[in-house]
Design a binder for these strands. Structure first.
Lengths: 137, 137
DNA sequence: TCTTGACTTAGAGCGCGCTCGAACCCGTAG
DNA sequence: CTACGGGTTCGAGCGCGCTCTAAGTCAAGA
């Protein structure tokens, strides 16, 4: 598979794939006789996993640490596991924080909903004007 | 309240507070006779809300839009509400995505746990060597 | 009076994660 | 043969969100 194909299949750009290889996030790719990168489909699994790490906010320097352990191969599993477990805790905390923010957003939005309702009340005929908040019938 | 106090109470740096004022995220602050910014405690509520928007990944340009509507005052509630509702949907999607990533992380970590167990099996005395994966008794 | 320290402004600099441009090299279709 | 649509390397540039420096002002305490 050439870099363009991998780009299409991975969702990254060829530029980004080269960049990732340059910094060590992707292993140095085999080249064909034209010195073009020639990928095995298995790289897609790794790119997808990197995407998960990225989505969950892991900085590239941490991904690099993980990638380096992976390159080292057997014997680094315990450290890789520890890295992922730490990261998992951070992500869980992040989810909790986002959920807390969602509650605040809900409250704020409810406030605007009530503003809207008061506005509708003011527009309504006199016999419907009752003090305070109220659902339309 | 002076900028240093606000910094301590808000968790932002004085630099960042001035930066936020410069770009319009914070309203232009009143100055005392020494041209120093003099804040009312109510600004803390707004800063805290900005923090929520930031935590949930809203880019500054979008916060600016919301801040501008807020400055405009009455009559902009519907648009502010719409902004927040759109943002809430994005945050919900983000939470879903993170939870999906957490599942993947769990799976990956489980893989390493099993690697570790196999390693322990190999270290164990012969009578405990049973083929395949297995919990310690 | 003098020192200290927090404030002011304008503008430069930085770390991150790409993103792109320049100049060049191939292989294939017309 | 030539044009084109990929690929290559190296290095510069960019958008974001701060972060910091320089040079100066001001008020309060020793």
């Amino acid at each position: 598979m050439k870099i363009g194909d991998l780009a299409r299949r991975s969702g990254l750009t060829a530029h980004t794939i080269r960049y990732y290889e340059r910094i060590g996030l992707l292993p140095y790719a085999d080249r064909n006789q034209s010195r073009h990168r020639d990928y095995d489909a298995s790289i897609l699994t790794w790119i997808e996993f990197l995407g998960r790490l990225k989505t969950t906010g892991m900085p590239i320097r941490d991904m690099l640490r993980y990638a380096a352990l992976r390159e080292e191969g057997a014997g680094t599993e315990a450290e890789r596991r520890a890295l992922l477990e730490q990261h998992r805790e951070r992500v869980r905390a992040q989810v909790d924080e986002l959920n807390a923010c969602l509650l605040v957003l809900d409250t704020k939005i409810d406030g605007y909903v009530e503003t809207e309702q008061r506005k509708n009340d003011d527009d309504a005929p006199v016999q419907n004007r009752i003090r305070g908040r109220r659902k339309p019938a």
